[in-house]
Computed example of a mutant assay.
Amino acid sequence: MAEALAGGGLDQLARRSWPDGQAPSLRWILCHMIEEYARHNGHADLLRESVDGLTGE
């Protein structure tokens, strides 16, 4: 993150592009990664709750 921020910020485009030739911004990538991480944490909570029966924090 520090390197990306120092090298142009989150609005710079990724080095790799999608098959259609467009490249996402680093901001889009970061937001997408946070969203996916949160989604999988929610799935892990559901699995844990079904195994141990405990809910909440």
Rank of each mutant, 00 (worst) to 15 (best):
M1C: 13
W18E: 06
M1R: 11
L47Q: 01
L10Y: 03
A38F: 10
R27G: 07
A14M: 04
E57C: 10
D11E: 14
A44T: 14
V51W: 07
D52L: 08
Q22S: 12
H40D: 10
N41H: 14
R27L: 07
E57M: 08
A44Y: 12
H40I: 08
W18S: 10
E57Q: 13
C31D: 14
S17T: 13
R15E: 02
D11M: 11
L5Y: 12
S50W: 04
A23D: 02
D20Y: 11
W18R: 15
I29S: 01
R15L: 04
E3D: 12
H43Q: 12
L54Q: 07
S25H: 06
W28M: 11
A4R: 03
E35K: 15
D45L: 10
G42K: 08
H43F: 05
W18K: 15
S50P: 02
D45I: 08
L30H: 07
L10D: 01
G53C: 11
S17H: 13
A38N: 13
A14V: 01
E35N: 15
P24K: 14
P24F: 04
L10C: 02
E49N: 10
A23E: 03
G42D: 12
H43Y: 08
L54K: 04
V51T: 13
H32D: 08
H43S: 11
H40T: 11
G9D: 03
H40V: 09
T55L: 09
N41C: 10
G53A: 13
R39F: 11
S25E: 04
H40Y: 09
I29L: 14
E49W: 04
S17W: 05
P19I: 02
G56T: 11
D20P: 01
L5Q: 14
Q12H: 05
E57K: 13
L46P: 00
Q12R: 05
G56L: 06
S50F: 00
G53Y: 01
A2I: 05
V51D: 09
I29M: 13
G7F: 02
W18T: 09
D20G: 06
E3C: 08
E49Y: 05
P19K: 06
L26P: 00
L54C: 07
R27K: 14
S25W: 03
E57W: 03
E49D: 11
A4F: 07
W28D: 10
R16G: 06
L30Q: 06
M33E: 14
M1K: 12
H32F: 07
N41Q: 13
L5R: 15
E57D: 11
Q12L: 04
A2P: 03
E35F: 14
H43K: 11
R16K: 14
E35R: 15
I29R: 04
G53D: 04
A14C: 06
L46V: 05
E36S: 11
L30P: 00
D52Q: 15
G53R: 07
W18C: 09
L47I: 01
